[in-house]
């Protein structure tokens, strides 16, 4: 492999036969995109640029966008030959994660609404226990 001097030509040759292979252009797009998205999310939070509920939505959207950017440009998901097994396995994972996180939050918030509110005595008792 060392025999090939022109590395640009080599990259093109490799990528033609293996669509999953890395390319410098892809990495640069992914890197700059991620930096920009992180900075926007950070500045929005730092300056409380909008109402809280709006910000929650915006930050979630920015995180998901960055997730997509890194999946495509860093992890090369969906670029492989079909059947796109990487993409299929990942879709299954996303379904499991949604059920797990969404379900836990749903159940626990429901439970939270049903338990007895803690009284002042209970809080004082718990604070008195040194080993808590």
């Amino acid at each position: 492999m060392n025999k090939i001097k022109n590395s640009q030509t080599y990259d093109v040759l490799v990528s033609r036969h293996n669509p999953e292979s890395a390319s410098l252009r892809g990495y640069i797009i992914g890197f700059l995109g991620s930096i920009a998205l992180t900075l926007i999310a950070y500045l929005l939070t730092y300056y409380h640029a909008a109402g809280r509920d709006v910000l929650f939505g915006l930050l979630a959207a920015l995180a998901l966008t960055q997730f997509a950017v890194q999946l495509i440009y860093f992890l090369h998901v969906g670029k492989e030959f079909s059947p796109r097994l990487k993409l299929i396995v990942m879709s299954c994972m996303i379904i499991v994660v949604c059920i797990l996180v969404g379900g836990s939050l749903w159940i626990m918030s429901n439970l939270n609404g049903r338990v007895m509110p803690s009284t002042k005595q209970m809080t004082r008792y718990m604070n008195d226990q040194d080993n808590l």
């Binding site: 492999m1 060392n2 090939i4 590395s7 080599y10 990259d11 490799v14 292979s21 890395a22 390319s23 410098l24 990495y27």
Partner: peptide, 8 residues
């Protein structure tokens, strides 16, 4: 990874 693909 890019350098490795080029064998460098």
């Amino acid at each position: 990874v890019l350098s490795a693909q080029r064998g460098n």
